[in-house]
Design a protein around this nucleic acid. Sequence first.
DNA 1: ATCGATTTGTTCGTATGTATT
DNA 2: CAATACATACGAACAAATCGA
Lengths: 250, 250
Amino acid sequence: MIPKIKKINLGTQLMDTMISLIENGTWKAGEKLPNEIELANSFSVSRNIMRESMKILENFGILDSKTGIGTYISDNAISNICNMRFFESLKNNTSIEKLLETRLIIEPELAYYATLRATDEEIETLKIVLEEDTKKHLITNFFHTDDFHFHLHVAKYARNDILENLLTTILEQLSADAYGNFNKFVDNSVKIDSFNDHMAVFGAIQKRDPLLAKEIMYHHLFARMKVINPDYGTNLIYSEKIRNDRLKEN
Amino acid sequence: MIPKIKKINLGTQLMDTMISLIENGTWKAGEKLPNEIELANSFSVSRNIMRESMKILENFGILDSKTGIGTYISDNAISNICNMRFFESLKNNTSIEKLLETRLIIEPELAYYATLRATDEEIETLKIVLEEDTKKHLITNFFHTDDFHFHLHVAKYARNDILENLLTTILEQLSADAYGNFNKFVDNSVKIDSFNDHMAVFGAIQKRDPLLAKEIMYHHLFARMKVINPDYGTNLIYSEKIRNDRLKEN
DNA sequence: ATCGATTTGTTCGTATGTATT
DNA sequence: CAATACATACGAACAAATCGA
């Protein structure tokens, strides 16, 4: 398969050079840029192209244009360039395994924090979410994106916006990707196991037992990972048993 | 303090309406859009403004323009809209505590995976990084961004691009923010503790003891958190002791 | 293989609204 | 109030790429 090279147009070239100007310190944070016409001239492009590039950088929080005053380099331009790169990597990332691994890392912790931070009302909501899933589960071949409602609710109750949003994009990517279709044809026993795991996680949250919620969530996701890659974790030694052994040693 | 409402210009309005058109299903993924002139007419804006908005959406991977052919809605437009929102939240998020909490959640796991996946050469590199830090530590009042080299290397060796990039942006935000300055004036004992933690994490990685690396990293970051918010975690029960107790009970 | 139609890429000229002085 | 500097917005045009006849 030949990788499609997108022909670089003036706009993206401009964007890239402006970013490097900021990164190498030629343009410093807080600094005022020359006006659009001068800029366009100095880069030898038209004003519209100049504007298109600047608009994109403005949208990324790297530039800051104020009507009638001028355009400035954002105070946190460098940090937003970093964000932009993160975003790029997220956009191009297609490895289902890495997406699942990320879930494996963050979701047990989210379950842990959700157990500590969810209000009683929120736990009731979670119960309702599960009950609705039960209905779907009994009636149709429920799965795929439906499965995600529970996880997203748990993430919300953990009160960490960053990781909640990260999980949202990961789940969105998983359901958009082949993984979404894959799940439709997965063996029924896997679905049932998965559903029971949800019930167990909920039970732990309801009992306000954060460590238990965390452990169950981990094993739930680890089982999912095993479905798409049976070899995963053969080099890993994270397991209840070994952990127990280690802790008893001390 | 009055929140500054950025006067919505035509471009951002257009962008928002186009996104809702995609989200509510009026524009479906893979669909071809009318040409720029027709679009501009139907939205009653000039072609330039139309282009500016489309360029931004293209940059986010929501639209896909091909010279001489036309503009299409990306196949994974919805998932990229989600990414965009994540990016927005990351851009506006200023809570140092949430940034640190995210580190507290992901970095122990990254240390864990790094211990399992780092090559012997990479562990040597890590050693050199630490030695360089030692020199800086002895000579100048080393800290703040210097402290981050070690963490970023560990993240890299964990072989999870998503979380490595997330950590990079978090550390970048922390050093850009007040936190960076704050760290400059922190008590010297804190610096020494922190440095010793790094040594201990490295020791665990070198011994190929992933659980130990994870535990030390956790306590290292928890201590950092306590510096900026002494009350943090008083409602948390995550601790070696309690975990031990729980596991021995069973 | 050439031509024409279509569509994005790019440029220029001009007018308007807004903020500073 | 007037002058200035600037971003915002529009319209017309040409160039380059693509596709189908």
